[in-house]
Amino acid sequence: MIFCMSETYSDELLRSVLKRTKTIACIGVSTNPVRPSHYVARYMGLRGYRVIPVNPVYAGQELFGETVRGDLSELKDDSVDMVDIFRRSEAVPPIVEESLSLLSGLQTIWMQIGVRHADAASRAEAAGVTVIQNRCPKIEYQRLFGELRKGGFNTGIISSRL
């Protein structure tokens, strides 16, 4: 089952990642508005994150008010603190290696639903980077900050506070 979510992350961890993050490099994002990668990246942009699209196929085009970068080496000076991977799991290791070596402010590597790579994840964790696999930051944002409530989804949040 491709959408099985076996990795477990506490709400506290996910919330702190989404709160501390300012700039997200979206690797493999599409310019086609109905592709999930486009959908997610655009949403994060609407929520106030700076979203930098990375995709060699569209390098040089404009997307979300940014120029699409061809690869991670073009991101050196952009103070990226999270890399969000919209690629097949096999493509993950080199992206992780490059991110670790090129992005000095990197705090989080996030892999989308269906994307996971245990070895690459351990590599990044050993370097002090938080790794989230097989999740969608849009869905987690919508769940943790109350938006999914509006659609009748199970957010798992119980609170008597305002």
Binding site: Y39, Y43, L46, Q142, E147, G151, G152, F153
Partner: peptide, 23 residues
């Protein structure tokens, strides 16, 4: 793109609480 209230044929804040509770 965003989950929210538009029109009560689709979503309503009171009904949404019940939906989440049963789910």
């Amino acid at each position: 793109q965003e989950v929210g209230y538009i029109y009560s044929r689709l979503t309503n804040p009171t009904v949404a609480v019940l939906q989440e509770r049963i789910a």
